[in-house]
């Protein structure tokens, strides 16, 4: 049985103009105990919304979220609050996610106060210091405020808060995208170590394919509220079947100046999510689109062992650009 199971999750918002925006449109996803699933997408893909729906920081309009066999939608507010000790989140914005008026110790202690009210003050302090040590922050930081810390240190506090109550699952919502390259690498090392020692399962949300490729066992690719491709990271990134995945991967720039794979450009920008076609969301930008793509929703279907793609022409090669890459030298 999987640890987390999303089935047919849909979430709409109302735009200021009163129109319905599909942020997430019928998403199914399962995460096993202790595994890392990557969720890749560009802005507007709904990936962060999926992360919040998975731990019920948002209520889905339709569909169910089952965590460790319990449907979260059926829980009363108090029971849901108690259940939260098992699933946590680390946010993209390290500073904004920490209350500026609290000390680091008070921030990290908050889950313990809520989830283990029986814990004494001294015991709580010990647990807080342990968590700070686990994220490799000096104990002296305990009595400082978030504003005194660097971005990387703030994100470590965010991680300490997420793990202090010993959850089984953590949503990592772009935890490294606001950080510098060398800080980001250290953060990924830390997250990998914590996963090993604490046996955590992660949903790793990112727009950076290189990071997901490095960090995740399985990967889902989202575009305009739908998962368009899902499989092991190797399947999805080394043999992508959906045209969007292919285009996204080919837009990634290698740091090796001699590694210049072909580029498969999509037409135009990501469209406005208030005017979605009933069929494939990529239809207006896809070089492979045929009339059937527009008519009806396209379900994920198997293109390999455990490898799914939502495309009528899955696996067909995209036309590459004529323009050769490379500098003038």
């Amino acid at each position: 049985m999987s640890l987390l199971k999303l089935e047919g999750i849909t979430k709409t918002f109302t735009s200021p103009g009163g129109r319905t925006v599909y942020a997430v449109n019928g998403v199914d996803l399962e995460i096993e105990e202790g595994e890392t699933v990557g969720l890749i997408g560009e802005s507007g893909s709904g990936k962060s919304t999926v992360g919040r729906l998975a731990i019920r920081l948002l209520e889905p309009d339709a569909g169910t979220v089952t965590f460790a066999g319990r449907e979260l939608g059926g829980l009363a507010p108090r029971a849901l609050r108690r259940a939260r000790s098992e699933f946590q989140i680390v946010f993209q914005e390290p500073f904004e996610s920490l209350d500026p008026r609290l000390t680091i110790a008070a921030i990290v202690a908050e889950p313990l106060i809520n989830f283990s009210p029986a814990l004494g003050r001294a015991e709580r302090r010990t647990r807080v210091l342990e968590a700070l040590e686990a994220v490799r922050l000096p104990a002296a930081f305990a009595d400082r405020h978030p504003g005194d810390l660097s971005g990387g240190q703030q994100q470590r506090v965010g991680i300490a808060r997420a793990i202090v109550a010993r959850p089984r699952f953590v949503v990592l919502d772009e935890p490294t995208s606001s950080l510098d390259l060398t800080v980001r690498a250290a953060m990924l090392e830390l997250l990998a170590d914590l996963q090993e020692t604490l046996g955590l399962a992660y949903l790793f949300i990112s727009h950076d394919i290189q990071t997901v490729r490095y960090f995740c066992r399985r990967t889902a690719v989202m575009y305009l509220g739908r998962i368009v491709e899902l499989g092991t990271t190797q399947q999805v990134i080394e043999a992508p079947k959906h045209p969007y995945t292919q285009a996204l991967l080919s837009a990634t720039l290698s740091v090796d100046p001699d590694e210049r794979p072909p580029h498969y450009p999509l037409r135009g920008d990501i469209p406005n999510p208030t005017q979605l076609p009933p069929g494939c969301p990529l239809v207006g930008r896809c070089p492979l689109a045929i009339p059937e793509c527009e008519a009806a929703p396209i379900a994920l279907s198997a293109v390999g062992d455990g490898h799914l793609a939502a495309c009528l022409r899955a696996g067909e090669a995209l036309p590459a650009t004529a323009a050769a890459l490379g500098g003038t030298s």
């Binding site: 060398t182 690498a185 953060m187 490095y214």
Partner: peptide, 20 residues
């Protein structure tokens, strides 16, 4: 060298940089 080592690449372990 440290910058380049921090870039995630398949089959290589990335390394962060300590200190500030």
């Amino acid at each position: 060298a440290a910058l380049l080592r921090a870039v995630p690449r398949p089959g290589q372990r990335i390394k962060g940089l300590g200190g500030t």
